[in-house]
């Protein structure tokens, strides 16, 4: 079975600064992968390259075996890759309902109808159903600019999921969200993701969230992948704990873990 997403020797430089190098990743359908790493480790650069926001300096990105390097973000979305953002990308002056209605029209209908009203009964019902699935229907008539961070994050993800992506990339879905709301938000999101059967990559700094939801973890350090393996194995790795997590984690490793090796051999600079 070929991988849903495969990157080969992916690299991105900004002038003299190399933000990502030698990124080789393979993601299969239905996998839930946590992406960890300190700020500047290359996580968002990786997501930006996969979603067409940044063009790689070198390397290949394949979705279902087809190269998507150089495609515009809209073409990447059509190829089956959706994303949410660290800072929720919404239409702040429109209401929550209008955000979803526009998103439905642009990503599902895909016909820029000139004269048919956006606010039809059928569309409104559908939009409210979607908001209910993400547990934010109570905010339907509120203007986005007035919403709390958690609701914005959920709306951002709900809108990205409308195109039914086969691979969903969530860039720090819980950042800026109150600690007590993080798990509730992730629960809602992961329920939707599981139902859609989309493979998911989520960037996360909270190791409790990573442990609970990720089947597999990619640990980034200094623009490279330091470790790639099952969540338990990667998070229990001393090198990952020292360089990425920053503190000790007590994790039991199941000997039947699917991945034989977690730490990818590499020279760790400044270690």
């Amino acid at each position: 079975m070929s991988a849903l997403l495969e990157t080969r020797n992916l690299e991105r430089s900004f002038g003299a600064v190399t933000a990502a190098v030698d990124i080789n990743v393979s993601i299969n359908a239905g996998e839930v992968v946590g992406v960890i790493g300190s700020n500047g480790a290359g996580k968002t650069t990786f997501i930006n390259m996969v979603t067409g926001y940044l063009k790689p300096s070198a390397g290949e990105i394949l979705v279902d075996g087809r190269s998507i390097v150089g495609l515009q973000p809209r073409a990447v979305v059509r190829a089956g890759v959706g994303r949410s953002f660290q800072v929720a990308q919404l239409f702040p002056e429109l209401s929550v309902l209008d955000n979803v209605l526009v998103a439905l029209g642009l990503s599902v209908d895909r016909k820029l109808t000139l004269l048919r009203p956006l606010h039809s009964q059928k569309r409104r019902r559908k939009a409210l159903e979607i908001l209910a699935e993400y547990e934010i229907a109570g905010h339907a008539d509120e203007v986005v600019a007035t919403l709390p961070q958690g609701v914005r994050k959920l709306l951002d993800i709900a809108m990205a999921m409308l195109s039914s992506p086969r691979l969903m990339l969530l860039d720090e879905p819980t950042s800026g969200v109150a600690i007590e709301d993080k798990f509730a938000l992730m629960e809602t999101v992961m329920n939707r993701v599981r139902k859609s059967n989309a493979a998911t990559l989520f960037v996360e700094h909270d190791m409790d969230v990573v442990q609970r939801y990720a089947d597999r973890v990619l640990a980034f350090y200094d623009g490279r992948i330091l470790a790639d393996g099952t969540t338990a194995k990667v998070l229990s790795d001393p090198k990952v704990q020292e360089l990425v997590v920053g503190h000790h984690l007590d994790i039991e490793v199941d000997s039947a873990d699917a991945y034989e090796s977690t730490v990818v051999p590499m020279e760790v600079r400044n270690a």
Partner: peptide, 14 residues
């Protein structure tokens, strides 16, 4: 939508 956020419009596939 374009006035408010071009990035989101592109990432809706349009």
């Amino acid at each position: 939508a374009v006035r408010e956020n071009e990035i989101r419009v592109e990432y809706l596939g349009t």
